[in-house]
Amino acid sequence: MSKNTLVIENLNKVFTTPNEQVIALKNVELTVEQGEFLTVIGPSGCGKSTLLKIIAGLDVDYTGKVELDNKAIYGPSLQKGFIFQEPRLFPWLTVEKNIAGDRSLKDPTIKQQVAELIKLVKLEGFEKAYPRELSGGMAQRVSIARALLRNPAILLLDEPFGALDAFTRSHMQEVLLNIWQTNKTTMIFVTHDLDEAVFLGQRVIIMNPRPGHIKSILPIDLSFPRKRSSLGFQEMRRAVLNEFEKVEEETYTIGAGI
């Protein structure tokens, strides 16, 4: 097994409320190799965000095996970067200080790395700006740079572009692909946008709710950069949509029985 492989075997997660037990994840099996771009898609309540939080180490209340680089995940670590749906920048810190976070900009190496990351996410000239002066897309790029400074082996993204408009979103997707190709960081990208899943992922994981589990995994054999208008893209999109509709049908049937 190569370095930094993520292995998930027989993962189960139950939420206990005073009245009932909800099975959030059932028997999830997944192996992600170093450098892979994985997208996860599914209707709300399918457990995709829960899965991401477990990999991040933000939720350790589960049964089964979740290992990164042959070590069980028992909490957050710098190996695993996390991008939230909102940028979650510290409003009292400038862009460069937000990226540096707990590290000091007085350290020339850190200063250098921060400058390079600002270039990578195309924010030159905004080093000293405060978060309130940034647009949504710019703020999210700062949060990506902040995660990248820690040099994570794996980057977990929880619907990071969900709140952005269509133009900004497609620009951000290009930025992210560029980062992925430059840094070879493993990406696990949760989304509810079909186009986004097909545009970014080498594999698309389709999840199904009640109980949350992986319904199917579709490899997207298209080379980068992908064109949304190309025939191949449209075919893959249709294939995912087919799976998706199956998911919806099943959900509906199960739902109808209750």
């Binding site: 933000l58 970067g81 939230f84 979650r88 510290f90 976070g101």
Partner: peptide, 16 residues
């Protein structure tokens, strides 16, 4: 609490 979660992910030490 959301910013606190960020600090957790970024592994801030107590002082920071």
């Amino acid at each position: 609490a959301k910013l606190f979660e960020v600090a957790k992910v970024l592994q801030f030490k107590k002082w920071n």
